[in-house]
Amino acid sequence: MIGFLQNLADALSLGSLYALAALGVGLLFGILRLVNFAHGDFISIGAYALIVPSFEVTAQLFIGTWNWSLMIPAVTLIVVIVALISDALVFRPLRRANAPTLMIASFAVSYVIQNGILMVYGARPKAANLWSGLDAPILLGDLRIPLLQVVTIGVTLALMALLTLFLKRTPYGVMMRAAAEDFRMAQYLGVRGNFVIGLAFAISGILATAVSLLYLSQTGTLGPTMGVPLALFAFVATVIGGMGSLLGAVVGGFLVGFIVIMLQAYLPEDLRVFRDAFAFTFVILILLFRPSGIVPTRAFIERV
């Protein structure tokens, strides 16, 4: 029982990261029909922004040494700026392009960011120690839960609540939801298209930053493609959740986290190396039974 609860905590914390990443992907998909493969690289940027540019193996923290109340806004700002620049330089000229073109453009953005990181920081993975105080476990009876997991889950829930409040209660949130549903109609009502898209990129950047900081504190390692697997699982999460539904993205994220951790825990040892293959089998099964995802939206079908 303790073992299962331990695994459940792991699943919730990994699912949190996937859910946050999936929200960032889902937000842009909803408003722009962009499947943003560069989202993982936004996550990498957030981690690399903490350290001094160098080819050394041991990363020297720079912004990372600042007090968190200064460091988090600084890193967030850097990631948001990168996200906004990729919109301005790449996606804005492609406003009238179709979804596959946008997706391929996002591959290009991803490639440019990865190679930019290679040029400035080198190819070797780096060790970095962020927030080591969070390693301390919380004891609940026999259950030992790392503080970091609690923080991860807490931050995720808080960000989701904030995003929900923003989307439901503020004018810009209402404009974004309107634009996500019918972009042209929103424009006819005076909603500035480029502004809401920029806003979506900025929020996507904020969510990516949260993922990078939490992920880096968990793993303690930086690599030029560190965000890619996270983004890959986030895509899977948005697809099984239902493309275009933010609730679906969150549900999908937690579900994927749950599947991955439980496979890791309960698969026979010999099969554990094939964990991801089993995880994707689940994904295929889910899609066979619910082709439009767990929380289907009409938006996707209508647009295509």
Binding site: P171, A178, G190, V191
Partner: peptide
């Protein structure tokens, strides 16, 4: 919300 979109 529909009614408000155009008033912003």
């Amino acid at each position: 919300e529909n009614l408000r979109v155009g008033t912003y």
